[in-house]
């Protein structure tokens, strides 16, 4: 018998600090599997952001840089522009990317920066314990929308893929989900394709991964997975928003 599934090499052995059932761990694995399968870990430089995944450099084996909150796309730009042969990715949550980092992500995309962005959207701030994020759904409870998110007060959740797809710079944008086995397999393909787009120098690539936050959603891991499928996907439809027909 041969091993057909195990921890990817590009992930260290360290046990991850994420809460039980949190899909960050799956997202990390998919990125590491891409690095392994494309054999690029040696020339990859990852940019960790600020949020639950602030210390993703404890988990990814490639060289890593810790970016200030929201600034990972700018840091990635600096790295890629000085080392154009390297593979650069950022790993960011919805607070990091779509709140404080909106300027950086929009302009990195508009420049067609040849980087890959892994965007984890779980509609909440996890690390700081459950505040509203720019992607928090209407009526969703959070520690800063204790009566539910109200459009009149808190505005509307941002659809990042659709937003960035209006720009000419991005070569590949897909929204996938980690909510079940089938969707995880599709997400794996999307993540790998995003890195291949960068390897081919075709421009900016981003994969938004709908994810769970059992702790701050107040749901158990399985209920959280279902919430992604029952609620998140309605506001954040899955699919390719840029580079549908791209061959890599």
């Amino acid at each position: 018998m041969a091993i057909i599934f195990q921890k990817p090499k590009a992930l260290k052995d360290t046990s991850m600090h994420y809460c039980p059932g949190c899909t960050h761990g799956i997202a990390h694995r998919l990125v590491a599997e891409a690095l392994d399968e494309l054999e690029i870990e040696g020339r990859t430089i990852g940019i960790a952001s600020v949020g639950c995944s602030y210390n993703s450099y404890d988990y990814f084996g490639c060289d890593m840089i810790q970016a200030p909150h929201g600034r990972a796309p700018a840091v990635a730009t600096g790295v890629k522009r000085s080392k154009p042969d390297s593979i650069v990715f950022t790993y960011q949550g919805d607070g990091d990317l779509a709140a404080i980092g909106t300027g950086e992500i929009v302009h990195a995309a508009a420049r067609g920066e040849k980087i890959t962005v892994i965007f984890i959207n779980n509609t909440i701030y996890g690390m700081t314990s459950g505040q509203m994020a720019p992607t928090t759904l209407l009526n969703q409870y959070s520690t800063t929308t204790p009566y539910g998110r109200i459009a009149d007060l808190h505005g509307y959740p941002i659809k990042v893929c659709e937003l960035l797809a209006t720009l000419d710079g991005p070569a590949y944008i897909e929204r996938a989900s980690l909510a079940d086995v089938k969707q995880i397999k599709n997400a794996k393909k999307a993540v790998k394709k995003a890195f291949q787009v960068q390897m081919a120098g075709l421009g900016f690539s981003m994969v938004e991964l709908l994810s769970t936050c059992p702790t701050n959603w107040g749901l158990n891991p399985l209920e959280s997975m279902n919430r992604v499928k029952d609620e998140l996907v309605l506001h954040y439809p899955l699919g390719v928003f840029k580079g549908e027909s791209l061959e890599v």
């Binding site: 840089i65 700018a74 840091v75 730009t77 600096g78 790295v79 522009r81 000085s82 080392k83 302009h107």
Partner: peptide, 24 residues
């Protein structure tokens, strides 16, 4: 060389942080 006009001074200093981290 590479010249890049950033979208803000905040982005610019973070690009410097990225490039500097590679020993450039």
């Amino acid at each position: 060389g590479v010249f890049l006009q950033a979208e803000s001074e905040v982005a610019a200093i973070n690009m410097v942080y990225g490039a500097g981290s590679t020993g450039t």
